Computed example of a mutant assay.
Amino acid sequence: MSTTTELTQPRRQPALMPSPHTPWPHALRTALLAAVAVCAVLLAFAWPSVTAKVQNLPIAAVGNPDQVSQIAAKAPAGSLDIRTASSRDEAVELIKQRQVYGAIVLGTSPEILVASAGSPVASQALTQMGAQLQSQIQVQAIGKLQSALTQAAQAAQAAASGQAPGTGQAVQAQQAAPAAAVPEVTITDVVPLSSDDARGTGLAVAGLPLAMGGMIGGVLISLFVSGTWRRLGAILAYGVVAGLGLAGILQGWFHTLQGSFWANAGAIGLGVVATAAIIVGLNALIGRAGIAVGAIITLFIGNPLSSLTQPKEFLPAPWGDVGQWLVPGASGTLLRDLSYFPDASAAFPWLVLGLWTLAGATLIALGHFRNAPAVAVA
């Protein structure tokens, strides 16, 4: 009877136990960690722009030693790295080889040579220098003109008083006055940007999607692909497809990139392969924490130091050079060279991307052997 009663009566659900509260010290540590993280993100992205200044800008100067020394003396201390060139043609060649960002041609026809494709910021700085040079020339010309007019007045007074030498002085002064014409400083852009990206923002903005593209591929392959060879194959296939797709958008649609489409696609593909390989390799070696480490290296260190928006010389030393050894900096420099500076040597950025790719592949292989089960010996 009791058994039948127990079967017919509904069972009582056990009371839900309240979840234990997080201890206050743990909650406060979490809040502190989040605050530190957001401050680190701000520093990573804002520090290069805030601390950057016009310094050590490599430019060429064409003129006699006295004129070049005057330019160096009148420029703010440490702002220029002046390299002499024997002629305007040599200065143009140095710009096209990306050894300098521009040039100052002195003499009777002063000229400022800029390369907006190399760096719009450097071009703007050199253009402002041209305006200052024009002001200095005008001041000097006015001084010469005033001196010539004074001599003419003195010669006229001497001639009026009956002094014979005054006539010759008056003629010389009258001939000197027209010679005080003010030469105009010409600004010439020897390597201009594409008309579709006249301000150079497209190439600078492209850096973040390229970095994110490599990260996305690395994360997805880390999570959804197993096996060393399969991961390497997936990374290679991703690089080919992503390179063609991103180059098609940046060059075929936005017209940000110039030059050979296939070379640009190869550079983009190698860039995303290098980033993806590092993330997958770190994940294989140390687990999911490797994804975070790879993201920090790429997004929070490499991208801010890439110098896509300003010359690397403007960053505090040695961070401008450090950025060129990371994937975002090498990728940006390589795409700029391929698009606008075919005469410049692109061996260094190709080498950097290749080394990062090799390092990622090595980490993937090491992670495979580290995680492989031990073979029992009979």
Rank of each mutant, 00 (worst) to 15 (best):
155 A>K: 04
137 I>W: 07
161 S>L: 14
120 P>Y: 02
140 Q>V: 08
119 S>Y: 05
96 K>V: 00
119 S>M: 00
154 Q>Y: 05
124 Q>C: 00
170 A>D: 10
132 Q>C: 06
171 V>W: 05
95 I>G: 03
112 I>M: 06
168 G>H: 12
103 A>L: 05
102 G>H: 06
117 A>T: 00
150 T>Y: 13
97 Q>S: 14
156 A>T: 10
102 G>F: 05
138 Q>P: 03
119 S>Q: 00
111 E>N: 08
130 G>D: 03
134 Q>K: 00
139 V>Q: 06
104 I>Q: 01
128 Q>M: 03
128 Q>I: 02
102 G>A: 09
156 A>V: 08
134 Q>V: 01
166 G>D: 05
130 G>C: 05
95 I>M: 02
124 Q>A: 09
149 L>T: 07
122 A>L: 01
108 T>N: 13
93 E>L: 07
97 Q>R: 13
123 S>G: 05
157 Q>S: 13
117 A>V: 06
123 S>N: 06
111 E>D: 10
103 A>D: 03
137 I>E: 07
124 Q>W: 01
150 T>C: 12
158 A>P: 11
132 Q>T: 09
142 I>H: 13
104 I>Y: 02
101 Y>E: 03
104 I>T: 03
110 P>V: 11
99 Q>I: 10
152 A>N: 12
108 T>P: 07
128 Q>P: 00
100 V>M: 06
149 L>E: 10
159 A>D: 08
140 Q>D: 10
164 A>T: 14
115 A>R: 06
135 S>K: 10
143 G>Q: 13
119 S>F: 01
116 S>A: 10
100 V>G: 05
140 Q>M: 06
133 L>V: 02
162 G>L: 11
96 K>I: 04
135 S>I: 07
111 E>R: 00
157 Q>Y: 09
165 P>D: 09
170 A>R: 08
148 A>G: 13
160 A>N: 14
154 Q>S: 11
114 V>E: 05
129 M>P: 02
158 A>W: 09
104 I>L: 15
153 A>F: 12
121 V>E: 10
152 A>M: 15
167 T>Q: 12
95 I>V: 11
148 A>D: 13
129 M>K: 07
166 G>A: 12
118 G>K: 00
150 T>A: 15
113 L>Q: 04
159 A>Y: 06
130 G>Y: 04
169 Q>W: 07
149 L>K: 12
112 I>S: 05
116 S>M: 01
165 P>I: 07
108 T>K: 11
132 Q>R: 09
148 A>F: 15
117 A>F: 00
